[in-house]
Design a protein around this nucleic acid. Structure first.
Lengths: 248, 248
DNA sequence: CAGTGGTCTAGACCACGGA
DNA sequence: CCGTGGTCTAGACCACTGA
């Protein structure tokens, strides 16, 4: 099964919602009707609906129906977030999807070890051999993000300028066969350092947004720890919250 | 069914993980074993596991098992986020849970209408009658958040200083019978205004974190629009991302 | 009352991983 | 090969909404 049925249904329904076929505040066809249309059981439809709810596209109401709560957003002035929709998407993918040009400049690349301090922050074991990488990322030629990546050398044995300035994630996925399983992220705001001021376009603001991220591959190995220092200019992070038991 | 079985299982498993009974990087019992333990089917266990995965506590690996990826976090210096875990939690609840004192000072409260500009931002209809409210919120007596709430008057007919300075959400839920269905939030960073500088403890930083939020009740009515201006001092926002199809 | 979404069971088949 | 998680079906019963 290349693409699960619930995922196909999810894509179709999302498309209908985003194209306005199902309008803001209107009700979707009932679960039974959708099950009939897609020749599947209610359970399968419900999984597709759960995905839509997770994106903040719909709201299910017991006894009444499923309401569309998606509103078209104004076109963003830069990719709204590296991490849209609770999913996992690389910055390059996000830029492509929104029609922005992304370029990357490698600042440094070196082999190193995990010390106690990094171990505490990242969750990696003390003494692990890692590659440390610093990159400057420009959106539409404006330097907006300073990335500091740490990769486990056992997973990512080597990197070079070419890989690092195109897309590391494409390299990981296609060349190394690494796929991301889960990532936990923390967003904080910090005073800009001299490096930040020198390298990033901060628009006069003396702070940056730090997105710190620990990433597990699908084998359950914590292989990446990254701190992305974002210029606050145009930074946007979107998320949807809902009452807990509705997320099934 | 007061509390669904999958939710009970979820709570139990989460407790075991957070107490270290199931350790970081170890495997959970198999789904079949858990189904046996809790006298239910695999499907029900899987719903509980989906909730744990949604919190970044576990990572499921096909053919291998379910790995614990939860790490104990250092005690935060203030409640890490109003909106932990993709769920919905009021600031008061978050403060209580983390043992922080929260106090609130009402700055203004007035009746108003939704104009075109607010309609565009919030998604409310032009001309709706609303209550507009400004509050200063202090954590451990430090003024850290400036809240600007807009409530639909048809849902929240009246407010007063007492309600507004204790917990609006408790009032909504217990007195008015309003429950939250879904909320979409956007996090941005903005230059501090004069008001911000005067009212908030900014620690010398010239910016604030704006968390903008549109909230639907369980009847599918967009009844609240809020902009919370947070001091960047200690601001922290946590989230978990995972490959999409795993969220079922 | 009929129709909606919410929960749960029983059982099937598949894809993947490791011994 | 067996055990793991991933998908899906068929059908049941419940809780809630609105006519």
């Amino acid at each position: 099964m290349a693409d699960p049925k619930y995922n196909v249904i999810f894509q179709i329904l999302r498309h209908r919602i985003e194209q306005g076929e199902y309008k803001f505040l209107s009700l979707l066809p009932s679960e039974n009707a959708l099950a009939l249309e897609f020749s599947c059981t209610r359970n399968t439809v419900r999984k597709a609906l759960a995905l839509l709810a997770g994106q903040g596209h719909i709201l299910t109401m017991q006894g009444r129906g499923v309401q569309v709560i998606y509103r078209r957003r104004p076109v963003p002035s830069r990719p709204p977030s590296t991490f849209l929709l609770g999913g996992i998407e690389s910055l390059k993918e996000a830029a492509d999807r929104n029609g922005f040009s992304l370029s990357t400049r490698m600042l440094s690349l070196e082999e190193s070890y995990v010390d106690r301090e990094l171990a505490k922050r990242s969750g990696m074991a003390v003494g692990e051999v890692v590659l440390r990488l610093r990159r400057l990322r420009l959106l539409n030629d404006v330097p907006l993000i300073l990335d500091e990546n740490v990769f486990l050398k056992s997973i990512v044995p080597s990197l070079n300028k070419t890989i690092v300035e195109s897309s590391i994630y494409a390299h990981l996925e296609h060349e190394l066969g690494v796929t991301v399983g889960s990532a936990t992220r923390t967003v904080t705001v910090e005073p800009a350092t001299e490096d930040d001021v020198e390298l990033l376009h901060l628009g006069g603001l003396g702070c940056i947004v730090a997105v710190t991220s620990s990433t597990f591959d699908t084998n359950g190995l914590l292989f990446e720890y990254t701190v992305s220092r974002h210029s606050p200019i145009g930074f946007e992070f979107n998320t949807t919250a809902r009452r807990l038991p509705a997320s099934i």
